[in-house]
Design a binder for these strands. Structure first.
Lengths: 156, 156
DNA sequence: ATAATAATGATAATCATTCTCAATAACTGA
DNA sequence: TCAGTTATTGAGAATGATTATCATTATTAT
């Protein structure tokens, strides 16, 4: 059961071949709204397509990221994480990272001020530095509920 | 010439020993407002303290980060970068990362809307998810001036 | 000063990610 | 449909950043 047709089209339109690994990886990403690491993706894909190799996972993820189908995140835990762009684009979505247990929480709610702020900062960036902004991300760091109780901070 | 006294105090107060490597690393960070990588820090420190070892650089950076004296950043280029917290705290400062050449530009200017936005988002996070926010970061992704001219996008 | 022990430096080890290359599978045009 | 071209794959080696190990050294409290 190959993934959504529009996804496949985006690949073929861009001149890439529609291979099994690519379709399965896209499926796995589509069925897992969390931020999966390459290794987690590998394990999921492996169930449907046991022949998969780690290198292919990385190559495909890189391809999908460059094509804009997938977003690549870095939460500072030493591995990259990936999410379907169509999922991430359901609204401006930000991340809260617990600095103690590493838990990551999405929160997609947008607030009026955000549009204005981003617009203002973007304007400044382009005027002062000549940058052309394509996207932005806000990361919040702090303690999740569980980690606030257990008081011994200080490690990742 | 050991670094600023207040920095040293912060270390000893926290129960850590005041060693040469630590002081020199602090100095180097203080004299370089950019975001240095561990390797860059190593080279700088090496000029003043040739005996320095890479492991010590990493250990010290980790210590300083955990102590709150240094901020650790991850711009997605595969290596962590560090900056003195006192420097970074001179104002809310954000980063613009060129997705083509990897250049990073700080821009520390704050805008009225920002305070409100962060406050609003923070409130929501704590109410809905029980998070306690300590800090936040905004990253902008796009193309720097130089990379807008040379049109061939698509690689890092 | 001296003892107690935290911190260091050299090195090996680890971990995620990328590279290499021969084998394979996807598109193309006939 | 089939063969040819070539992108893509999988296995494993290679890389690069970071971390762990451990005997030696330096710092601090006594």
């Amino acid at each position: 059961m190959p993934g959504p047709p529009w996804l496949r089209q985006r690949l073929t339109n861009a001149g890439f071949r529609l291979t099994w690994p690519r379709q399965v990886i896209l499926d796995v990403l589509g069925q897992n709204p969390q931020h999966l690491s390459a290794e987690e993706i590998f394990f999921h894909v492996h169930q449907f397509y046991p022949g998969i190799g780690m290198a292919t996972v990385y190559r495909t993820l890189d391809l999908l990221t460059r094509t804009g189908l997938v977003f690549k995140f870095d939460f500072g835990d030493g591995r990259s994480r990936y999410e379907l762009a169509s999922e991430a684009a359901k609204g401006p979505h930000h991340h809260m990272i617990c600095t103690r247990c590493g838990r990551i929480i999405d929160f997609g709610h947008s607030i009026d001020e955000e549009g204005e702020l981003i617009a203002a900062l973007g304007k400044e960036l382009s005027e002062k530095h000549g940058f052309k902004i394509n996207s932005h991300r806000i990361h919040f760091y702090g303690l999740c509920q569980d980690c606030q109780s257990s008081s011994t901070e200080g490690k990742r």
